[in-house]
C-alpha cells in the first residue's frame, strides 16, 4: 500500500511539470483508448512511469536476491554480487561499449556475461571436491569476480578516452535515466521466473540456513537446492543489472533492515525485503532525477543515503539477529 502511494507520488514529480489533474486526465484518456501526441503523454507513459516501475522492479529484485544469498550463505555480509554476477554483467556491458555496439546489444551482453560468470564460478566450485562447498563457492566467486574486474580495468585503459570511457564510467555507476518501457517489460518476466522458485521453496531455504549437516538431517538435498537458489538469484540480478547498470548497496543493506524488522526467517524475510527494496530504490531514484537539473548517479545516492541510515539502525538495537 505504501509502495503504491510512493509510486503515485513519484509519478507526479519530475523535471517536466505535470499537475494531478493533468495526470488523471491523461490516464482517463489512455483508459478510454484515446491516444495523444501530447508532451504530457510522452513524459508520463514513455518516460516517467517506465522509470518508476523500473526502480520498483530493480529494487525488489536485488533486495530479494540479496536476502536469498544471505540466507543461503548464512552470512550477513553477502551481497548479490558475491558470486560475481554484477561484475560479470559489468564486464559484458563494458565489452559492448568498447565494441561500440548499440544499446540493446550492450544490455544483452551484460545479461549473458553476468549469467556466464556465475555459471563459471559454479562449475569451478563443483570441480573442487572440498568439505566446505559453500566456502569453495564463495572463494571461486571472489577470484572470478577479481578477474572480471581486472578485465574491466583493461578495457577502460584501451577504450577511447573521449567517447567510450565516460560511457563506461557512467554505466558502472548505475542509472535508470535511460530506461524505457520495452526494457522494463523484458526484465519483469525474467525477475518473476527467478522469484518463483524462491517463493515456492521458501521453507526449504529456511532449513538451509541451519547449516548443511542439519539440513541434510532434516531431509533436504542441500546441493541441488543451493543450485536452484543460486540460479534463481543470479537470473534476477543479471536481468535487472543489464538494464540499470551496477547499483550497489541495496542488495546488501535492505535484507538487513528487513531482518531487523521481521527476523531471520526466510518466509517472512523474502517478501519484506522485496517490498522494502522496491520502496527504497523508488525513493532514491526519485531523488536522483529531481534533485538537480542533471542526473545524480543513483549508485552514489544509494550509498550516501543507505550507509548512515544503516548505521543508525545498527546503533538503535540489535533485535532479530542470528
Amino acid at each position: 500500500m505504501v509502495l503504491l502511494l510512493l509510486m503515485l507520488a513519484a509519478a507526479l514529480v519530475g523535471a517536466y511539470p505535470i499537475t494531478f489533474g493533468e495526470f488523471i486526465a491523461a490516464f482517463g484518456q489512455r483508459l478510454t483508448g484515446g491516444t495523444s501526441q501530447d508532451k504530457i503523454h510522452t513524459v508520463l507513459f514513455d518516460i516517467r512511469l517506465p522509470r518508476v516501475f523500473a526502480a520498483v522492479v530493480v529494487g525488489a529484485a536485488v533486495a530479494a536476491a540479496g536476502a536469498a544469498y544471505q540466507t543461503l550463505f548464512r552470512n550477513p555480509l553477502v551481497s548479490p554480487d558475491i558470486l560475481g554476477v554484477s561484475t560479470g554483467a559489468g564486464l559484458g556491458a563494458v565489452l559492448g561499449i568498447f565494441l561500440s555496439l548499440p544499446v540493446a546489444a550492450i544490455q544483452l551482453s551484460a545479461f549473458v556475461v553476468g549469467l556466464a560468470t556465475v555459471g563459471l564460478v559454479y562449475a569451478i566450485a563443483a570441480l573442487v571436491h572440498g568439505r566446505e562447498p559453500v566456502l569453495v563457492l564463495v572463494l571461486a566467486g571472489v577470484v572470478v569476480g577479481a578477474l572480471a574486474g581486472a578485465a574491466i580495468s583493461l578495457l577502460k585503459i584501451l577504450a577511447d578516452p573521449y567517447d567510450q570511457l565516460p560511457a563506461i564510467v557512467f554505466w558502472l555507476l548505475g542509472s535508470l535515466s535511460a530506461i524505457r518501457r520495452g526494457e522494463v517489460l523484458a526484465a519483469v518476466p525474467l525477475v518473476l521466473i527467478g522469484l518463483f522458485p524462491l517463493v515456492v521453496l521458501r521453507w526449504r531455504i529456511n532449513v538451509l540456513s541451519l547449516g548443511d549437516e542439519e539440513a541434510k538431517a532434516l531431509g533436504v538435498e542441500t546441493g541441488r537446492l543451493r543450485l536452484v537458489v543460486i540460479a534463481a538469484a543470479t537470473l534476477i540480478t543479471a536481468s535487472v543489472v543489464a538494464i540499470s547498470g551496477v547499483i550497489g548497496w541495496v542488495g546488501l543493506v535492505i535484507p538487513h533492515i528487513a531482518r531487523m524488522a521481521v527476523g531471520p526467517s526466510f518466509d517472512r524475510l523474502l517478501p519484506t525485503a522485496t517490498l522494502l527494496g522496491a520502496s527504497y530504490l523508488l525513493i532514491v531514484d526519485t531523488l536522483a532525477r529531481t534533485m538537480a537539473r542533471i542526473e545524480v548517479p543513483i549508485g552514489i545516492l544509494t550509498a550516501i543515503i543507505g550507509a548512515p541510515f544503516f548505521l543508525w539502525l545498527l546503533a538503535r538495537g540489535r533485535e532479530g539477529w542470528s
Binding site: G14, A15, Y16, K39, T42, V43, D46, I47, R48, R51, P166, F170, S175, S177, A178, R289, A292, R293, I294, E295, P297
Partner: peptide, 20 residues
C-alpha cells in the same frame, strides 16, 4: 541547454530533462 550550478564536465541527464 545543460546548465548545472557548481558542476563542470560530463554529466548524465534523463530523457525527461531533455524534454524540459
Amino acid at each position: 541547454v545543460a546548465e548545472a550550478v557548481g558542476q563542470k564536465g560530463l554529466v548524465r541527464v534523463s530523457m525527461e530533462q531533455v524534454i524540459v
